[in-house]
Design a protein around this nucleic acid. Sequence first.
DNA 1: CGATCGTTGCGTCAAATTGT
DNA 2: ACAATTTGACGCAACGATCG
Length: 268
Amino acid sequence: MWWHQQNLCFRHPIEEDYSSGDLDKKVATIAETDDSADSEVIDSHKRREILSRRPSYRKILNELSSDVPGIPKIEEEKSEEEGTPPNIATMAVPTSIYQTSTGQYIAIAQGGTIQISNPGSDGVQGLQALTMTNSGAPPPGATIVQYAAQSADGTQQFFVPGSQVVVQAATGDMPTYQIRAPTTALPQGVVMAASPGSLHSPQQLAEEATRKRELRLMKNREAAKECRRRKKEYVKCLESRVAVLEVQNKKLIEELETLKDICSPKTD
DNA sequence: CGATCGTTGCGTCAAATTGT
DNA sequence: ACAATTTGACGCAACGATCG
């Protein structure tokens, strides 16, 4: 269990409570033995006592890294994974970049220029030309933008409510992208009404609640992924530290043996 | 070849922690 | 104080290894 590895290397004060056993087993034992009527309440309290928190990986590691040189800090997510994809790095400076469910990158530059790139292609080869046209009567607050994809057989629509943009991609014969406020990325498959104005009817309220829930789930999904990634990184860091300390220990033991030999030479 | 087991990763919930 | 973020726990599914 990775938790024990952590205890090996540097015990945080809060970790003291965990040092004598497997936490999973503790919790499981409690859950098995407590079957009274209000066991759930007691369970949660006991669990909470047992599961008292330690600081986050990031905090522990960053604190450690300030004490021990050579231990890398866990960085904030930056350019490599979520930043500008290489395909569109040479394009006009975009204000927003989104990745669709099909893996395409879509960049919306200031001035409304929309650029699409395929991750598998090189540089601007993946770009698809966009021709924007205001068509018919778009939903209130939205402008329907169409573009002709070079490689696809159909047209794809963009909804651009004012200056705010987010892309929603759908799979199927004709992929569609929905653009909304950049800060409110919605889960894939969730389609929002184009006019978010007044929500009064119970159905609308329910839809709004569903939408909020989907948004929350999506955010947490991403957060969990990120958390697991950090955890892996953290464990890797600890493992490398163990390796370094083992080498150090070995050297010290050898040195000690040498000094012993010097101080007390063998007498025949 | 099917059954079983261990491992790994994911989504979700709930609670703790952190930021404002 | 409240919202947002982080993470432990849990259940589930997929996958490969092993066994009979």
